[in-house]
């Protein structure tokens, strides 16, 4: 197990370097930061000096090497747009994004799995059909549209929920949380629903099809024949055996949720990393963009690692194989 973790960590460094390199080669296409860092009256000479100071005239490989060198030293640079250290900026924004992502993922799991089980066990009931129809809508509507429709309904027409922001935030020193206040919970409902909607439908459909598959297998038939209660058959045996692919997908989707919170954060003006990244793109704020991308790559690597470890917990066969392998 420890060998696995170490191997993965070494791989992650390669992944992150690759992401940073690709990012750097793409940056030349996002535009000129200098034009936005100065006002219209700034002279050409001052602009040229600024470009030189920022090292934008250097060849891309040199800029990349300098970035990697600074990053290794723990220095992510200063944001071109708001003049603050990028490390501090990302640290400030991280709690908002992680809270939103986890609430969204939790929502998707807690609602999606039961819905999936229900539709698999009772495929003919009208409620199952309703679930499936709704899930089609969830999968086909783009995130920003769902967000705007929710804002319109619950924010403007009914006036129940705040339309933007994170509500009252409690600072715990190392973490800022909106989950300790009423306005914080009110604020997170719509963004989390918007962000989790797609995952919910995905999980529901996945659980349903896996469950239907498992219910047809022999060991379920034997379990039934043995006279086990439907409850034990469905939840003790069938559900457990559907969970492996669900864990894989959920894990990978969690990375996706964090990375693609960008759109939801923009629609709801949620002060997370995604919003920061989008503004950085518009401004060609290279230090913020590169650090964000590297950080997201790190998230994906970590999540994949956790998923791999969870496999071993859920699926005993993997543990046995390894022990056999070790014995040889």
């Amino acid at each position: 197990m420890i060998a696995l973790i170490i191997r993965r960590l070494i791989q992650s460094i390669v992944v992150m370097l690759t992401v940073a390199l690709i990012a750097f080669t793409l940056f030349r296409f996002v535009g000129d930061p200098v034009a936005q860092m100065v006002g219209q009256d700034t002279s050409l000479e001052d602009r040229a000096q600024l470009r030189e100071r920022l090292g934008l005239n250097d060849p891309v490989p040199l800029q990349f090497a300098r970035y990697v060198g600074n990053t290794v030293k723990g220095n992510f640079g200063i944001s071109y747009r708001i003049g603050r250290p990028v490390g501090a900026l990302l640290a400030e924004r991280l709690p908002a994004t992680l809270e939103l992502s986890f609430v969204a993922a939790l929502f998707a799991l807690l609602v999606g799995i039961p819905m999936g089980i229900y539709t698999a066990l009772h495929p003919e009931r009208w409620l199952s059909k309703a679930f499936l129809t709704i899930s089609l809508i969830g999968i086909s509507l783009p995130t920003f549209l769902i967000g705007i429709l929710l804002i319109l309904l619950f924010g403007v027409v009914l006036g129940w929920l705040p339309t933007f922001g994170r509500g009252a935030v409690v600072d715990l020193g190392f973490w800022t949380t909106g989950l300790l206040s009423v306005s914080g919970w009110k604020s997170i409902l719509m963004p989390a629903f918007t962000l989790g909607m797609f995952q919910l439908t995905l999980i529901m459909r996945l659980v349903r099809s896996e469950m239907l598959e498992v219910l047809r297998t022999d060991f379920i038939k034997f379990a039934r024949a043995r006279g086990l209660t439907p409850r034990a058959v469905h939840f003790g045996h069938a559900l457990k055996n559907t969970l492996v692919p669900v864990i894989t997908i959920t894990g990978l989707q969690l990375g996706g949720i964090i990375a693609f919170a960008i759109i939801t954060e923009t629609v709801f003006q949620w002060p997370g990393m995604g919003l920061l990244f989008l503004q950085a793109i518009q401004f060609a704020d290279i230090p913020v963009m590169s650090s964000y991308l590297v950080l997201i790559a790190l998230f994906f690597v970590i999540i994949n690692l956790i998923v791999d470890i969870l496999y071993h917990v859920v699926d005993p066969r993997l543990r046995i194989e390894r022990q056999v392998g070790a014995g040889q």
């Binding site: 804002i151 922001g165 629609v267 003006q269």
Partner: peptide, 11 residues
Amino acid sequence: TPIGSDPTRVA
């Protein structure tokens, strides 16, 4: 509060 998205600002 800065609100970048037009529909959100109007809402």
